[in-house]
Design a protein around this nucleic acid. Structure first.
Lengths: 94, 94
DNA sequence: TTGATATGCAAGCTCCCACTTGCGTATCAT
DNA sequence: ATGATACGCAAGTGGGAGCTTGCATATCAA
């Protein structure tokens, strides 16, 4: 559970989640490309790979290997758990 | 916006939010006491004070001064924004 | 098999974050 | 005014996170 918050505490990892939420099932190289093209991110391949490992350990990304490629899928469940931990409607203030 | 994720990436700060969500409007000393009593946390007063400053900068906690006491209130809005950024029902997988 | 592709592992470096420590300030009771 | 209470500021320290670098592994095409 604490891995989720640590994983989300990084701008590059949040951008990766945005990108996977838009186009699911990308490989590492595809993610590296789209991060450089569409978003202004220009990190190395190893950096992105380590970011994906952190996201996977947190349960925010699931992976599937086919051949020499590894496809990545966004899993929104851990984020829904965050919203359930601090629901907005417990108090009546503001 | 990135301050919210950084603020949530700390076990003590998350416990403070839990505590304020349960009993809103506590002072710094009250928070120090309840953290030690109910939860197993035993941080110094200065540490808790700095944690509250981080939470306030992120918009997760609002404060109100009366006399020499400062009362702290939990604001769930930034967390609702997180849930809105990655909604669960965008895809049909899982 | 050879070479290219796609990814993984591990050590080292730098920098930021949480915590401590010491002092300072404002408010209240006596 | 004096002391006690409740909190704030700022410098210093230790540990962890992200990034790089270099090498290793596995898959596919020729």
């Amino acid at each position: 559970m604490s891995d989720v918050f640590r994983a989300l505490d990084d701008e590059t990892r949040r951008t990766i989640l945005d990108e996977l939420a838009a186009r699911d099932g990308q490989t590492l190289f595809e993610i590296c490309s789209t991060l450089t093209m569409r978003h202004g991110v220009s990190s190395s391949r190893q950096a992105i790979s380590q970011h994906l490992a952190v996201l996977e350990a947190a349960g925010l990304v699931a992976t599937e290997r086919r051949g020499r490629s590894k496809f990545h899928y966004f899993k929104p469940e851990p984020i829904a758990e965050i919203a359930r931990r601090w629901p907005p409607g417990k108090r009546i203030d503001q």
